[in-house]
């Protein structure tokens, strides 16, 4: 099993930390992982993205041009990465701020209104975990117990009191995600 994922959005949306928690959870479940951020000028206020690979085997290139899954949190990233999803692959997007919808018919498309729902429940700061929950519903690559360990490892100790909220957000995401039909 190898899952090649791109997570993309604005800097500050928790793109890199979502990737880190996913990757660390993979480590806890004894998978091979890589986490390759885009960094540099574009990280400061512009789009941010991270490539996460989780595999049972040694990982080759940490840098890819096509993905099994794209998790998209803004329009620029949708425009850039929709075409990079492998045929038969998965595209998840948060419709908040999306005006041009995805159009491909050869991939599986899901939407998750994570930003809105997280705001309603007072969890705006961790809306990225809602998105992660949606992804894990569709692709249960790592089990909840290892997600818990991944959260423990990737969050600094002073934030460990937030772990139950993070897990709640993941559960919300699992309920929230919906298939989208491209007409």
């Amino acid at each position: 099993m190898t899952e090649e994922i791109i997570i993309a959005g604005f800097g500050g949306q928790g793109v890199l930390s979502m990737g880190k928690i996913l990757a660390y959870s993979g480590v806890m479940q004894n998978k091979e992982v890589s986490w390759m951020p885009s960094y540099g000028p574009e990280m400061r206020g512009g789009t941010a993205n991270v490539t996460v690979i989780i595999s049972d085997e040694r990982i080759s290139s940490p840098i890819l041009n096509s993905f099994d899954t794209a998790i998209i949190l803004n329009q620029q990233s949708l425009d850039k990465f929709e075409k990079a999803v492998k045929p038969g692959g998965l595209l998840i997007y948060d419709p908040n701020g999306i005006t041009r919808l995805p159009v491909r018919k050869d991939i599986n498309i899901y939407s998750i209104a994570a930003a809105d729902e997280a705001a309603r429940q007072g969890l705006s700061k961790i809306f990225n975990m809602v998105v992660l929950g949606g992804f894990l519903k569709l692709k249960p690559l790592v089990q909840p117990e290892y997600i818990h360990k991944g959260l423990e490892k990737s969050l600094p100790a002073r934030h460990h009191k937030m772990i139950p909220d993070n897990e709640k957000a993941i559960d919300i995401g699992k309920e929230l995600i919906q298939a989208v039909q491209v007409l």
Binding site: V33, S34, M36, I63
Partner: peptide, 9 residues
């Protein structure tokens, strides 16, 4: 820069 910045196990 990539090997320096990326995270792995």
């Amino acid at each position: 820069g990539a090997i320096g910045q990326m995270m792995e196990k």
